[in-house]
Structures are given as C-alpha cells and as structure tokens.
Nucleic acid binder design. Structure first.
Lengths: 119, 119
DNA sequence: ATGTCATTTTAGTTTAATCTAAACTATCCA
DNA sequence: TGGATAGTTTAGATTAAACTAAAATGACAT
C-alpha cells in the first residue's frame, strides 16, 4: 500500500501532471509520451513514469516490443479521501500521523524491486 | 486567486503538512510551532509559514506581541474540486491546462508584496 | 548468435527547494 | 529612548529532485 503523501508529491509535479494528462484516457508508449515533450530526454520521461508507477498512479502492460502506460484514476481516490478527512477535520491527525512519519526524511529506500516487469 | 497547482505543492511537503496539522484546530504562534519541531531553525519555520500563507492554506492575525497562525481548511476545497474533476475525467485537461501553464517553470515571481502585515 | 527497436538504469550534472546563521523589523514596556 | 521579545528576511550552504548522456536490458526478428 502506498501512502497518500507519496501520491500527493507525485501529483504535485507539473511534469508528472503533464504525463498523467496524456495517458488519462488513452494508453500510450513511453516513446509516444516523449514525443509530446521533446524538451526532455527519453530517459527523463522514463524516470517520471517510474515514479508515477511507484505511486500507483499509472499501470503498464507489455505488448510486443512496446510497453503501454495508462492512468489509474482510482489511485486518486485515496488522495481525495485524505483531503476529505482533512476537510472535515475528522481523524486526519490520527489517521495520517503514522503514514506521514513513515515517509518523512527517510533516505529514499533504495528502490530496487520490481522483478516481474512483464505486465 | 491562487492556483490548485500552488496549493498542491504546498500540501505535498511533509514539513508543511506537519505545520498544517499543528494549526489545524488551534491557533499557534510561530514560536510554538517551532518548539514542536526543534530539528529546524526558527527561520526555516517562518519561511514555511510564508509559503503556506501564500498558498492560502493559513491565515494569521496579530495579537499583542505575537502573531497567531491557523489553518484555512476551506483552501483545500479548490484542491478537492480539482481531484474530483480529474477523478471523473470531466474537463480537467481543458480546465487545468491554462492554470498549470501559468505555474510551470516560471522563475518564482519574486514575491515582495505584503505591505500591511497587521492582521 | 547478431541486430534492431523500445525502454530502463546508472553515474554524474544542473536546477530548485530547504535550511542555517545572522541581520533586520516590529511591538511592547520600562 | 533602550532593551527585551517575537517574527521576518537575506545571503549563502546543504540537500533533494530532475535532468542528460551513455551504457545496459528485454523482446523480437533474422
């Protein structure tokens, strides 16, 4: 399970929002996404795709030689829920303290997971 | 009027979330807030308070020698709305394109406003 | 196996956010 | 006025995020 804080910072980046918009209703390859933002390298796009995947905001599947990305709007549900809890002041202190603690100033847990990439 | 993107990045910072939680239901002075997070300097706290003010997430009033901060939960309304629009896929491409463009890679507009501080 | 295409990962750089220390401003009170 | 308290702002340092270029990987075709 991925924390609201993770989702939040993933969504907060303009570049990642740009990507999210592109794959919001259509599946796209990393290449196609890159073609829409020629001001950065392919590698940079790939890295952002990775963070979005890690945050659960995207899903991907492999098709022949390509890898197709698409948004997972459901992932915003957790975030919307968090905001709603904040909004009406219920719980959010208690509810979120633990999960925020978990992500605070932890020296990025050296992610080297993802053994089975094949979607 | 402050953009959703601004609010989003303000809320995305763990340090600012920490502050937000502290002043969520009670008014606190910058000093009191600082006492709750002794791992940073007073100045750092003050700067974060500033960004939260700029994003409209806090309000402040002066009382005697002190300045009292408190959260403005309403400010999350815009954000919740944005997420909701994303969620059900209506408009968010069109609706948000302009406002994101506006905040993207703009070299931070040299804020030097705020003449009348007295709350 | 070799080659090619699509993508990912790494190592190192650039850019932006956050922090510190110290100077500064403001308010109150003697 | 001067001193104490509370907070802000600045310049420069540190840390973290985003990027680039190049090497590495994976899947497919020959």
């Amino acid at each position: 399970m991925v924390s609201s804080a993770t989702i939040l910072s993933a969504v907060a980046s303009p570049r990642r929002q740009e990507i999210l918009r592109l794959v919001w209703r259509q599946e796209l390859t990393a290449g196609a996404i890159h073609r829409s933002m020629p001001d950065v390298t392919f590698g940079a796009v790939s890295l952002q795709l990775r963070s979005l995947l890690d945050a659960g905001l995207l899903e991907a599947r492999s098709e022949k030689r390509n890898r197709l990305y698409r948004a997972r709007p459901q992932a915003l549900g957790a975030l919307a829920g968090m905001l709603e809890r904040m909004w009406d002041d219920k719980l959010w202190r208690l509810k979120l303290e633990a999960e925020l603690e978990e992500t605070r100033r932890g020296p990025r847990p050296n992610r080297r997971r993802r053994k089975n990439r094949k979607g």
